[in-house]
Lab assay of single mutants.
Amino acid sequence: KELVSALYDYQEKSPREVTMKKGDILTLLNSTNKDWWKVEVNGRQGFVPAAYVKKL
């Protein structure tokens, strides 16, 4: 599985998104959309802005 690192804090703005803190390591589930990537963090799945994470 592919991992990404959070470059910035992000506070979810809808139920489809997830909150992350800078430095968090997230499991990348889907990166086909260039703007929003689906990740899993702390057992929750949702979307984060692609520009806020980088692949490890």
Rank of each mutant, 00 (worst) to 15 (best):
Ala6Thr: 03
Lys54Phe: 09
Lys22Leu: 06
Gly23Cys: 06
Glu2Ile: 15
Pro15Gln: 10
Leu26Val: 08
Ala6Ser: 05
Lys54Gly: 11
Ser31Gln: 11
Asn30Ile: 08
Val41Glu: 03
Tyr8Phe: 13
Ala50Asn: 03
Val41Ala: 11
Val18Ala: 05
Val4Lys: 02
Met20His: 01
Ala51Ile: 11
Ala50Leu: 02
Thr27Asn: 08
Lys55Ser: 11
Leu56Trp: 10
Glu40Val: 06
Val39Tyr: 00
Lys21Tyr: 10
Lys38Gly: 06
Lys13Thr: 13
Tyr52Cys: 15
Gly46His: 02
Ala6Lys: 01
Lys21His: 11
Tyr8Asn: 09
Asp24Gly: 04
Lys34Cys: 12
Ala51Thr: 11
Asp24Pro: 00
Asn30Glu: 15
Pro15Arg: 10
Pro15Asp: 13
Ala50Thr: 05
Met20Gly: 00
Leu28Trp: 00
Gln11Val: 15
Val18Lys: 01
Trp36Asp: 02
Lys22Tyr: 06
Tyr52Met: 14
Tyr52Glu: 03
Pro15Ala: 13
Glu40Tyr: 06
Lys38Thr: 08
Ala6Gly: 03
Gly23Val: 00
Val39Lys: 00
Glu12Arg: 13
Leu3Asn: 06
Asp9Tyr: 05
Ala51Glu: 13
Val53Gln: 00
Gly23His: 06
Leu56Asp: 07
Gly23Thr: 02
Thr19Asn: 06
Arg16Gln: 13
Tyr8Met: 12
Val48Ala: 03
Arg16Asn: 14
Val4Tyr: 14
Asn33Met: 09
Val4Ala: 14
Ala51Gln: 12
Thr19Glu: 04
Asp35Arg: 12
Thr19Pro: 07
Gly43Pro: 01
Thr27Phe: 12
Lys55Met: 13
Gly46Val: 04
Lys22Val: 09
Ser14His: 12
Asn30Met: 08
Leu3Trp: 14
Arg16Glu: 12
Val39Arg: 00
Ile25Met: 08
Ala6Ile: 02
Val53Lys: 01
Leu3Lys: 11
Phe47Cys: 14
Lys1Gly: 12
Leu26Cys: 11
Thr27Glu: 11
Met20Leu: 09
Gln11His: 14
Glu17Phe: 06
Tyr10Leu: 01
Ser31Arg: 09
Glu40Lys: 05
Val18Cys: 08
Thr27Leu: 15
Lys54Val: 15
Arg44Ala: 06
Arg16Gly: 14
Lys34Asn: 12
Lys38Trp: 15
Leu7Gly: 04
Trp37Asp: 00
Lys1Ser: 11
Ala51Lys: 14
Val39Asn: 00
Tyr8Lys: 12
Thr32Gly: 10
Arg16Phe: 14
Asp24His: 04
Ala51Asn: 13
Arg44Thr: 07
Leu29Pro: 00
Pro15Ile: 10
Lys22Ala: 13
Lys21Cys: 12
Arg44Gly: 03
Trp36Phe: 07
Lys1Met: 14
Val4Pro: 02
Lys38Tyr: 15
Trp36Glu: 04
Phe47Gln: 03
Asn33Ser: 10
Lys1Gln: 12
Arg44Asp: 03
Leu7Trp: 05
Ile25Leu: 10
Lys34Thr: 11
Tyr8Glu: 11
Leu7Thr: 07
Arg44Leu: 08
Leu28Lys: 01
Ser31Cys: 14
Val41Phe: 14
Ser5Met: 15
Val41Thr: 11
Asp9Val: 02
Pro49Ser: 02
Gln11Ser: 12
Val18Trp: 04
Lys13Met: 12
Glu2Trp: 13
Gly43Arg: 04
Gln45Arg: 11
Ser5Trp: 15
Gly43Gln: 06
Tyr10Gly: 00
Leu3Tyr: 15
Glu17Asn: 06
Lys55Gln: 11
Ile25Trp: 06
Asp35Thr: 13
Ser5Val: 15
Thr27His: 10
Val48Leu: 02
Ala6Asp: 01
Lys1His: 14
Tyr8Trp: 12
Thr27Asp: 05
Glu40Trp: 06
Phe47Asp: 04
Tyr52Asn: 08
Asp35Phe: 15
Arg44His: 08
Arg44Ile: 09
Ala50Pro: 07
Ser14Thr: 12
Ala6Trp: 01
Ser14Pro: 05
Tyr52Trp: 08
Ala50Arg: 09
Asn42Thr: 05
Leu56Thr: 09
Gly46Thr: 02
Asn30His: 08
Gly46Asn: 01
Leu3Gln: 11
Asn33Gly: 11
Trp37Ile: 05
Lys55Gly: 08
Lys54Arg: 12
Ser31Ile: 07
Val39Gly: 00
Lys38Ile: 15
Gly43Ala: 05
Asp35Ala: 10
Thr32Trp: 10
Phe47Lys: 03
Leu56His: 09
Leu56Glu: 09
Asp24Arg: 02
Ser5Glu: 15
Phe47His: 05
Asp9Trp: 04
Ala6Gln: 01
Gln45Trp: 08
Asp9Ala: 07
Glu2Lys: 10
Trp36Pro: 00
Val53Gly: 01
Ser5Asn: 08
Val39Met: 01
Tyr8Ile: 10
Met20Glu: 00
Glu40Ser: 09
Phe47Ala: 03
Ala6Val: 10
Lys55Phe: 12
Tyr52Gly: 10
Thr32Ser: 14
Thr27Tyr: 13
Thr19Val: 03
Gly23Pro: 00
Glu2Asn: 12
Val41Leu: 15
Ala6Met: 02
Tyr52Lys: 09
Tyr10Ile: 01
Pro15Thr: 10
Thr27Lys: 11
Ala51Ser: 14
Asn30Asp: 15
Lys38Pro: 02
Glu17Ile: 04
Gln45Thr: 14
Phe47Leu: 09
Val48Pro: 01
Glu2Phe: 13
Arg44Tyr: 06
Lys1Arg: 14
Leu28Thr: 02
Asp35Ile: 14
Ser14Asp: 12
Leu3Asp: 04
Gly23Lys: 03
Lys54Pro: 03
Ser31Tyr: 08
Lys21Ala: 09
Ala51Cys: 15
Glu40Phe: 06
Gly46Phe: 07
Glu17Ala: 06
Glu17Tyr: 06
Met20Ile: 15
Trp37Phe: 08
Tyr52Arg: 07
Leu29Met: 07
Leu7Glu: 07
Ser31Phe: 07
Ile25Asp: 02
Glu2Ala: 11
Asp9Leu: 02
Lys54Asn: 09
Asn33Val: 05
Lys1Asn: 12
Val39Ser: 00
Pro15His: 10
Val41Arg: 11
Lys22Ile: 07
